[in-house]
Write a protein that binds this DNA or RNA. Structure first.
Lengths: 207, 207
DNA sequence: TGCAAAACCAAACCATGAGTACAGCACTTG
DNA sequence: CAAGTGCTGTACTCATGGTTTGGTTTTGCA
């Protein structure tokens, strides 16, 4: 367990981003004011503008951090799963179980997907932020797609099937599951949806 | 084909809502200003406030209309499907195909789900609007769930399976598919996701 | 044709919110 | 200890945006 040594500045920067992210996931980016963030963070406006050039800069930094975090989380889960089975299919199934468990363990449910939130306010952000959301989704497609291709090699399916679509479906089920879980105030919904996706994978490759 | 006779007022009201909905799906509700709407609609602010008590009132009216529209669309698709097969499973499979086709025929792809958009800015709206989004999702669960229960009666599954979860999954896949399609600028993505859900249904009940 | 109701307009109000200018404090490195 | 640099505070600007008040036109209908 490495404890990052954070300078005071890094700490405030992180605090700003944490608070901002919570607010954005509840009200959307546009409705989240710098004012409210700095009040909660216990700093002043100049403090904010020292750390971020403007609001869009904050949006970008948050998104980058979010994508990085997701990446490392999935990395960990995949490594865990790979350690438990050599077989690509079973490893993927284990991964999905781990993923579902992780989502089930979030005390108040998943707070929301920042990428999804951004997509529904796309027109607010600069071009580079928008391409980041696109790239984020493409990376997941690639990542899950790779796994699926390894599986398909060993477990040939009868029906024609686009593996990229199947990879996308995990993102879709997760994003959709988060929305439903929020809307229905039911944190158990997301993990259950992931397990249904797992069923599809099983049914697809195990006949 | 009944053509609704709309008074001038009803026409402007509709125009406002159309423009607002487009804007909201692109930028979110908070970032959509009354100003821009009235400019596009060719009216003034007072014109707007004649039709809507306040901005939240507009949000509510838009959501109600959206839910009603969705309801009638699904109604039509279900009726069409039921006319083509007596069997609940096949009827549902036909319905899913029709649904996918409908989504595929949208020239620029699905513009976005208003409910999903609202969920990611929940904290902006009054309580009644928020309960409307919840109710909306519950209605879909009920509607799809009913169909699935009819299917399950005739096609018993071996594995334990919560049909409400399976019903929710259609909403999740749709909402998630819309997000992905928007993010990746690929209108074909949504219908493909629906067809993958259809595969799951087939695999589940036809072994 | 006249008149009430419906539909709309003009102009202001007030709050909020993004962003700036600039001064001041607290490190920490030469 | 001097000088920079990282960070915070005060005090503004300027634009936007939701909402109100009080009037004017247009429309449907008796």
């Amino acid at each position: 367990m490495t404890v990052k040594v954070q300078s005071k500045g890094e700490q405030t920067r992180k605090r700003i981003m944490d608070l901002a992210q919570d607010a954005v996931l509840q009200k959307g980016f546009a409705a989240t004011s710098i004012e409210e963030i700095i009040v909660e963070a216990g700093i002043t406006k100049s403090g904010f503008f020292y750390h971020f050039r403007d609001k869009n800069d904050l949006a970008k930094a948050m998104l980058q951090r979010y994508l990085d975090d997701e990446w490392t989380v999935f990395d960990r889960l995949f490594k865990q799963a790979d350690a438990l089975s050599e077989d690509p299919l079973h490893s993927f199934l284990i991964f999905l179980k781990l993923f579902a468990d992780l989502m089930a363990d979030l005390p108040n449910g998943h707070p929301g997907c920042l990428v999804a939130s951004y997509v529904y306010s796309e027109h607010l952000f600069s071009r580079d932020v928008r391409t980041m959301t696109t790239e984020g989704h493409l990376i997941w497609r690639k990542r899950f797609g790779e796994r699926l291709r390894l599986i398909a090699e060993r477990y040939p399916t009868q029906t024609e099937l686009d593996l990229d679509d199947l990879a996308d479906m995990l993102s879709a089920v997760a994003d959709g599951g988060i929305i439903l879980a929020k809307s229905l105030h039911d944190p158990t919904l997301l993990p259950k949806q992931i397990l249904l996706y797992r069923n599809l994978i099983k049914a697809t490759f195990l006949e």
